[in-house]
Design a protein around this nucleic acid. Structure first.
Lengths: 331, 331
DNA sequence: CTGTTAGCGCATTCAA
DNA sequence: TTGAATGCGCTAACAG
């Protein structure tokens, strides 16, 4: 018997000397001009005294909703998504919603039925950094996509990643860099395509600018290899722009392997501004992406959607944070 | 109207030509010797055909349980806890349970009532790496604590952190280190007390062993300062043992600030083996803590508890991972 | 202004 | 071996 015997709305009604429906109205906040202020106050007070909390299960059954949304993320072992969750959870809590997290495709295992576990009892979905196709099994459920192609069929909240990359290119360009290598994430996602296109265009717009590109999986070792290919290739880059802070760590390793000091011999930039950015030595010049804000605005948009309104697409600005990993190119 | 009209058990009953209660019995798996195999099969088949999934809200209301557990973690923006969640969620899903995460005290804000958001509708609690006191508002709810004092009043699943620290000390001792500094987390938690005591004892047990200790908050900058105090102090350590990988990154910075190469001039060790450990240069010698296993075993223990059994306390072994940050002390 | 009533979908007695 | 009836706690339509 897990649940202690909590007071019900009937108990409150009895305590306040009114009927159960009156309690429901008052506590539901919709008694404006239907219940006398005196009675309302009495009910509130009785509820407080008893420590009454409505039974969610009953509420859900009656209303046909759950006040729960699903947050789909590619993985939870990346701190970025922890921040997204935190932001979303804060807004959700303010509106009496809960969030259940679903790492996809990490859990794409048994598939007895898609989403056996959390698939039930969901009012809406927040899907971060994934292809639209994964939402196919959820036809009809309101969805807001985060960090995804705003041209898609569902409402989105995004980062202005293109602006971020342009800021990186401008910063590097002002320092005097012209031959710039891109350690790109080998992930077919809007956010990375966007970064790549923006960077390539910006670098090529530099007088004498030359852009090179190598792709790698999102981990240190693969990024190091890609950086090495760039350093050993024909471009002879003086700066390496990485799609993400973790990849920048790989670039540091590549630089060290070739005897190039950062930033004296090679400038390196990241993207995200995770804790890792300041753990590295030297500290990383990177673009700060407000992950918590992404979650918060996404949740707000989903709430609008659930109320029947159409949320306007939003794009959150990133901010270039200049630290110790960028300097003038070697003479 | 968020929820599409899903079939109910009544629909299944109609489809199978039986009564609703029969459906309930069959699908509940308790028809052994009460329903004829033929009828049972017909019901199963009808349910499958209709794609029937029981309505959780109704089920919860009737049963008084929620098949949901609360996972309390200090923060979600640390990848360690993401892994704990993933492990717990996997086991939970196998048993038809869901998990809602609650970062505490991050959300300890409004406090209109303790845990307004997720406090309802919870069958049990998994609390990782926190003091017992935070569970005071949840008297009566089954709890399993993770990474906490096993001598406490509730069932626990832990890491053998003391063994881990002894392995670190043995490794360092074998390399020839005698003067060992401890960059300790300034957090009053069992897991850190345990680490500190084990390390101090193990170092002092070394012939000629000397132990020094400085505390710092769990971030890079504070850890760097603490490491600096150790390096500048009377101990003149040849190795710095850190309570956590992030603090080790701070120790790297301190070493660099004093012109000491790692590992040639100073050996450094961490704890946890997060992604950061291999992002650093040189890669970090550390103790791998199986975070996902912690979550998995914790969830299993909680399920036992919910079934009325008393889970046996468990301690998961850590593993020393020797990488490039430790070497013989300078001559 | 307030109370009575019905029913959300399910598991479970009890009667047949 | 099965079906009819009941109620979990809540909200909302309808009466008074």
């Amino acid at each position: 018997m897990p649940a202690a015997n909590r007071p019900t709305s009937r108990d409150v009604a009895q305590e306040a000397g009114v009927s159960q429906s009156t309690v429901s109205l008052v506590l539901g906040g919709k008694w404006a001009g239907r219940i006398s202020p005196g009675t309302a106050a009495a009910v509130q007070e009785a509820a407080g005294r008893l420590g009454y909390r409505p039974n969610q299960a009953a509420r859900n059954l009656r209303l046909g909703t759950t006040r729960t949304v699903l947050l789909m993320v590619p993985t939870l072992t990346a701190p970025f998504f922890g921040a997204v969750y935190a932001g979303a959870a804060r807004v959700a809590a303010e509106h009496g919603f809960g969030i259940v997290v679903y790492p996809w495709p990490e859990n794409a295992g048994p598939a007895d039925s898609p989403f056996a576990a959390p698939g039930e009892a969901i009012d809406g979905i927040l899907a971060s950094s994934m292809p639209v196709q994964v939402l196919a099994p959820f036809q009809g459920t309101p969805v807001v996509m985060l960090d995804s192609d705003p041209a898609g069929p569902v409402p989105t909240v995004d980062f202005a990643v293109a602006d971020g990359m342009r800021a990186v290119a401008a910063h590097l360009g002002a320092l005097g860099h012209r031959r710039i290598g891109h350690v790109a994430a080998a992930i077919g996602q809007w956010t990375f395509r966007e970064r790549g296109e923006a960077l390539a265009a910006a670098v090529r717009a530099l007088p004498g600018g030359a852009y090179g590109r190598q792709e790698a999986a999102l981990d240190v070792g693969a990024a190091k290899d890609a950086a090495l290919r760039l350093l050993d290739g024909p471009l002879r880059p003086t700066a390496l722009v990485c799609d993400d802070d973790l990849m920048a760590a790989g670039a540091y390793k590549a630089a060290r392997a070739r005897g190039l000091p950062v930033p004296g011999g090679l400038s390196v930039t990241g993207f995200d501004d995770l804790q890792l950015a300041t753990a590295l030595e030297p500290e990383l010049t990177t673009v700060r992406l407000p992950a918590a804000d992404l979650g918060a605005h996404g949740m707000a948009a989903l709430l609008e959607l659930l109320e029947g309104r159409r949320p306007v697409p939003r794009s959150l600005p990133g901010e270039l944070v200049v630290r110790g990993s960028t300097a003038e190119p070697p003479a």
